[in-house]
Simulated scan of single mutants.
Amino acid sequence: MLDTYTIRQDEMPQEMRFLLDQYPRDAWDAHPGFKEKTRHWLGAHQMFRRVSERVRLDAEALLNKDMALDDYAGRLSYYGGNLVGNLHGHHGWQDHSYFPELSAADPRFDAGLEVLEKDHADLDRVLDDFTRQANRVIKLAHLDETQAREEAANVHKTSAVIESFLKRHLGDEEELAVPIILHHRLRG
Rank of each mutant, 00 (worst) to 15 (best):
A44W: 00
V155G: 05
F165I: 06
L19C: 09
D110A: 08
G85Y: 09
E53M: 01
D172C: 06
Q147E: 15
Q94T: 05
L63P: 00
Q94N: 09
A111S: 10
D129L: 12
E145I: 11
R132A: 15
W93S: 10
V126G: 07
A61H: 00
H31L: 11
A177M: 14
M1R: 07
Q94A: 13
I162H: 02
T158D: 03
H88I: 13
H88D: 11
H45W: 01
Y78K: 10
E15N: 15
A61Y: 00
A105N: 04
F130I: 11
D71Y: 01
A148P: 03
D122V: 07
S77R: 07
E53Y: 01
A30D: 15
S52P: 01
L83Q: 06
L113P: 00
S77I: 02
P32R: 09
Y23N: 03
H183P: 10
L57A: 00
R8C: 02
L170R: 08
Y98R: 08
R136H: 15
L83G: 04
Y98K: 06
F99A: 01
H90F: 13
L102T: 02
H31V: 10
F18L: 12
L176K: 07
G85I: 11
S164K: 08
D144M: 08
S159R: 10
E174M: 12
S77H: 05
L186C: 12
H45G: 02
I181C: 10
S164P: 01
D124A: 15
A105E: 03
Q9S: 11
Q14D: 15
A27S: 15
L63N: 02
I180E: 03
F99Y: 12
E60Q: 05
L57P: 00
V55H: 00
D29P: 05
L116T: 01
E151R: 10
E11G: 07
L57C: 00
E163H: 14
R39F: 03
D110V: 12
W41C: 04
G112M: 01
R49K: 06
K37L: 08
S52C: 01
Y23T: 06
R54V: 00
G74F: 02
V84F: 06
A68Q: 05
R132N: 14
G74A: 05
R50I: 00
S164G: 14
D106P: 00
I181Y: 08
R39W: 04
L113T: 02
L102P: 01
R8A: 04
N86M: 14
L170M: 14
L83E: 04
E53H: 02
